[in-house]
């Protein structure tokens, strides 16, 4: 057997040549390349955007929604804190007096005055409060889009966006609590607690 001929067809080897000639009918005849679906070409193009191309749009969307949420939530929380502060303190102080006079107080009494209607009359709400409903409407309109059929990539981006929003919201809550202190409405006075224990 001629090794050189077997490797690069240089020289000759009758035995191998006979086999080659016999097997020629089975050789690839050269057919037309398969016709390709256009959809796949588009997908290949899209998949070449890479990591940043894939994450940049959802990240921008998440930041934008967080800013809108901050713009709506921050002024609203400040207004309610200003409004409820003095009122709640007076209510709570009145309540403690009542519990002192009774031997066995009710376990937990809900403060009678909760509606902020008179408070609004006491403290003039700044004009920006009137902007809130319009902002809220804008946020709601964003949420009203799920009937659109999403691709897998878009669904994934949507879920990531929702996750980012949830995280942002919790962080904002922490910041708000840190800045404003604990909410007076959710606190029970120490005296009342002691009375309840007795």
């Amino acid at each position: 057997m001629n090794e050189e001929y077997l490797w690069n067809k240089k020289g000759s080897d009758p035995e191998i040549e006979i086999l080659e000639n016999a097997l020629k009918p089975l050789r690839f005849a050269g057919s037309v390349p398969p016709r390709l679906p256009a959809r796949v070409a588009e997908r290949n193009k899209a998949s070449r955007r890479g990591f940043f191309g894939f994450w940049l749009a959802p990240a921008f969307a998440a930041v934008a929604v967080a800013i809108v949420g901050l713009a709506v939530y921050w002024p609203a929380s400040r207004v309610t804190n200003i409004a409820t502060g003095p009122e709640d303190s007076s209510v709570l102080s009145g309540k403690t007096e009542v519990t002192k006079s009774e031997e066995r107080p009710a376990p937990i009494t809900v403060p009678p005055v909760q509606k902020p209607a008179p408070i609004v009359t006491l403290y003039k709400v700044p004009k920006r409060r009137t902007l809130r409903p319009t902002n809220l409407v804008a946020v709601k309109s964003v949420r009203k889009a799920p009937h659109v059929k999403l691709t897998k990539e878009e669904e994934y981006a949507y879920s990531q966006l929702m996750l980012a929003l949830a995280i942002t919201s919790s962080k904002l809550k922490i910041v708000k609590d840190t800045l404003d202190g604990p909410d007076a409405r959710t606190m029970v006075p120490i005296k009342e607690k002691d009375a309840f224990r007795k």
Binding site: R27, P33, K45
Partner: peptide, 21 residues
């Protein structure tokens, strides 16, 4: 081919189809 060039796909086919065959 990634850019959607079908002619390039044809070239790839002519180049490697005998091997795949």
């Amino acid at each position: 081919i990634s850019a959607g060039d079908e002619e390039a796909f044809g070239e790839l086919y002519r180049m490697y189809a005998p091997m795949a065959h």
